[in-house]
Design a protein around this nucleic acid. Structure first.
Length: 562
DNA sequence: GCCGTTTTCGGCCCGACTGTTTTCAGTCG
């Protein structure tokens, strides 16, 4: 089976090769189709089997045929033909910073250079000296670009949960610069994409030079790439690129809109503007010379006749039409999350740990917290909270939150002997399902409702069976940063199947931990409203929905022991 | 190659920055 990513990669390669051949608009068309396919919430196979490939934005007749060919045969004759015309190394030349299709093509056709290694040799041999367009400075830049090829900074995207703490630390440091007024991240981090290619930071400031100086001196900064009057680009020690822009206060909203993207969203927005005789750029919305809006993002969208669009939805997936017709979803927000379904204690908790948890929950204005009092895993020894901790949990608190004992069960852990589950007083289960979703048919479950599936390390392939399991059990699906972009994709699939989402609230976690923000971002990216979220519901007080499977197995021998 | 409230042709975002240039091309985001 050919994955969406593989198809997207093939289309991207076609785009690069067409670029090298000097094609004008085709490369962008292939790239756009590739980006759309990369962002799809379901497999191309499924879409193709319904005959709906053409419904994917940027996929027309020609590309649909090529996608079909890739799905059927795993190969693409058109791509093979292009590969035959252009040596593979020439495409690698294009990857070097400062080298685009034009320069790569010149190396190849004028100098016979067919790859980065050959370019390095050509530079050493002085073959570039005297060639038009290559002065000493440019040759120096190429030399260092070739030297770092393969580990080129900014080339690999990093998971958002790794980028978050870096962004937070940079924002904190820049806020401390006296001349800085407003500050925000932009780009894919603000859109809560699963991975980010670089960090974008926007500030308004009286003294841009002072901001750039402070930025350059941050301990995380390994290298200053470029610095102009309004923009500085650095590379962090880990290789992540950060762009800092200083904008005038009057244009902060326009700049924030512009640099948040996505590219496809902005392109769509600008063509809409043109239809209305307007122009949009990072300085504002214009009619002729007159600036109509620029101060805030809502003003910018309003000037185009649109409701403000949450950043997480800005991917050109229909959000602009929805904003025009007032049908954007009211996305779930942090204050909606009043129920934490699933928080762990340390391995040997003292009763005082409960006090800290309560304090943390109060700060977050949580009404209910599910506290794990027992962990039953198939592979390791069961863990249960000490009796005094369980006692402490049961003591009602004068002013919230309500603490609810919860059992976490992994795979066949529920069948383990020797644990007095009744003594723990758990009210519901958090289930860590096997990736094939076979749990309810093969395993026995205690007579407790499963409220949450905490899916760990899942993949796109494991999403459908786990979602089906959630549906059968009437459970919510926990989302958050994870491997293989499963969680953001699964969030969208879950929402489409009316399966509620469980969002970690961050209670009991380190303040630096990005899990809560990332998970909320994923849920919003999936278009989730508060109705779609377990955390915003009446948690356990009301009647708990019980699945047919759960009822059938309610008389579990595990619970009847003792 | 895609797309459509200028729809089957003729457009295709737009500005900053850099290097190599006397006015612009290429790259980047």
């Amino acid at each position: 089976m050919v994955s969406n990513s593989e198809v997207a990669a093939s289309l991207g390669e076609v785009a690069d090769l067409l670029d090298l051949l000097g094609e004008r608009f085709k490369p962008e068309a292939y790239r756009r189709a590739g980006r759309s396919i990369e962002a799809l919430p379901e497999s191309l196979e499924a879409i193709s089997s319904r005959g709906e490939l053409r419904s994917i934005p940027g996929v027309g007749e020609a590309i649909a045929e090529k996608v079909l060919e890739l799905l059927r045969t795993g190969a693409l004759a058109y791509l093979e033909r292009l590969r035959g015309q252009i040596p593979a190394g020439v495409r690698e030349l294009m990857r070097l910073p400062g080298v685009g299709p034009k320069t790569a093509r010149r190396f190849w056709t004028e100098l016979g250079i067919e790859g980065p290694a050959e370019l390095a040799r050509a530079i050493d041999a002085g073959r570039l000296t005297g060639v038009k367009g290559f002065a000493e400075r440019k040759i120096d830049l190429l030399r260092s670009a070739v030297g770092t090829a393969g580990s080129a900074p900014g080339s690999a995207r990093v998971p958002i949960e790794r980028a978050w703490p870096l962004a937070r630390s940079i924002l904190k440091a820049l806020r401390a610069v006296p001349s800085v007024h407003e500050i925000s991240t932009a780009g894919s981090l603000r859109r809560a994409r699963e991975t980010v290619g670089d960090l974008d930071v926007l500030v308004t400031a009286d003294d841009p030079e002072a901001v750039f100086d402070a930025f350059s001196r941050l301990p995380e900064v390994a290298e200053v790439r470029l610095r102009g009057p309004t923009k500085e680009t650095v590379v962090l020690a880990g290789g992540l690129q950060v762009d800092l822009r200083v904008v005038e206060p009057a244009a902060f909203g326009a700049a924030l809109q512009y640099f948040t993207g996505s590219k496809d969203h902005n392109v769509r927005l600008r063509s809409l503007a043109r239809e209305r005789g307007l122009k949009v750029n990072e300085y504002g919305v214009y009619r002729g010379e007159e600036r109509l809006a620029s101060r805030t993002e809502p003003e910018v969208y309003a000037a185009l006749g649109l409701a403000w669009i949450p950043p997480e939805l800005r991917e050109d997936r229909g959000e602009i039409d929805a904003a025009a017709t007032g049908t954007l979803p009211q996305l779930v927000e942090a204050p909606d999350l009043t129920f934490e379904p699933h928080v762990h204690l340390s391995e040997h908790p003292e009763p005082s740990e409960i006090d800290r948890l309560v304090e943390s929950a109060r700060r977050r204005r949580l009404r209910t917290v599910g506290v794990v009092v027992g962990v039953l895993r198939g592979t390791s020894r069961p863990w249960t909270a000490p009796g005094e901790v369980v006692e402490r949990l049961r003591r009602p608190l004068p002013r919230g939150p309500e603490l609810v004992p919860v059992l976490e069960v992994e795979e066949d852990g529920a069948a383990r002997e020797g644990v007095d589950l009744r003594a723990l007083g758990a009210r519901y289960l958090v289930l860590i399902p096997p990736h094939d979703g076979t749990y309810p048919t093969r395993r026995r479950t205690p007579s407790l409702p499963v409220r949450l599936l905490a899916h760990i390390g899942g993949t796109a392939e494991s999403a459908p069976p786990v979602l089906e399991l959630a549906r059968v059990l009437g459970a919510a699906l926990e989302i958050g940063p994870g491997t293989d972009r499963f969680d953001s994709t699964a969030a969208r699939l879950a929402r489409e199947s009316k399966i509620p989402l469980g969002i970690p609230t961050g209670v009991g976690r380190d303040d630096e931990d990005p899990t809560a923000e990332v998970a909320l971002g994923f849920a919003r990216r999936a278009g989730a409203t508060r109705e779609d979220v377990l955390n915003a519901r009446d948690p356990v007080g009301g009647p708990v929905r019980r699945s047919p499977a759960g009822r059938a197995r309610s008389r579990s021998p595990v619970l009847r022991k003792r």
